[in-house]
């Protein structure tokens, strides 16, 4: 019998994908490009106080992504200690891509469309940017799913761990 329990590695990859995907959003779109902040729509960052309030909510958002990332590191550490988990790059990378994609889709639908907290790039083309963000997320999920599916063939646990014996 070989290592077949992909769940723990998928869990780690998904959590890290969600967390790091959140950091891409927060660092790239909130801070470097400054296209939007957490509450750009109800509280446009037009003065110092509004910018600082938006920074507070951006910080809270980053704190949550940090917690999810930490949970992902913990899950990866645990998965690496188990002999029934295949140490598959394809499974892990696929789960990470899917996690990032799920972040974009869920955050995009809720924060951009339903709650109207902010848009990817406010302005005349904001709907196009929002849809692009969702499409990018869907592509990441598809790529992650395909990679993870290919990873089903990987059955070798992390080196140094004994493969569990079959139940006769």
């Amino acid at each position: 019998m070989s290592a077949r329990n992909r769940g723990p590695l998928v869990l780690a990859g998904l959590l890290l994908g969600v967390g790091l995907g959140g950091f891409v959003d927060g660092i790239l779109l909130h801070q470097i490009l400054q296209w939007h902040h957490m509450l750009s729509t109800p509280l446009p960052p037009d003065d110092v106080v509004s910018i600082k309030v938006n920074m507070f909510w951006d910080g809270l958002f980053h704190a949550l992504t940090w917690v999810v990332t930490l949970a992902g590191v913990w899950a990866l550490w645990r998965a690496g200690q188990r002999s029934d988990v295949p140490w598959s790059t394809r499974t892990f990378a696929g789960a990470m891509l899917a996690g990032w994609g799920f972040f974009n889709v869920v955050e995009g639908i809720l924060d951009h469309q339903l709650f109207d907290l902010h848009h990817v790039k406010p302005g005349p083309d904001q709907l196009a940017w929002d849809v692009g963000f969702l499409v990018f997320g869907a592509l990441l999920i598809t790529a992650g799913w395909a990679l993870g599916r290919a990873g089903r063939e990987d059955r070798v646990p992390r080196s140094g761990l004994r493969v569990p014996h079959p139940a006769h």
């Binding site: 329990n5 769940g7 723990p8 869990l11 998904l14 029934d84 996690g99 799920f102 569990p164």
Partner: peptide, 13 residues
């Protein structure tokens, strides 16, 4: 979503 996918992919001997 992560929880659902975890339980869908884990294999308990």
């Amino acid at each position: 979503i992560v929880g659902v996918l975890y339980f869908a992919t884990r294999e308990v001997p």
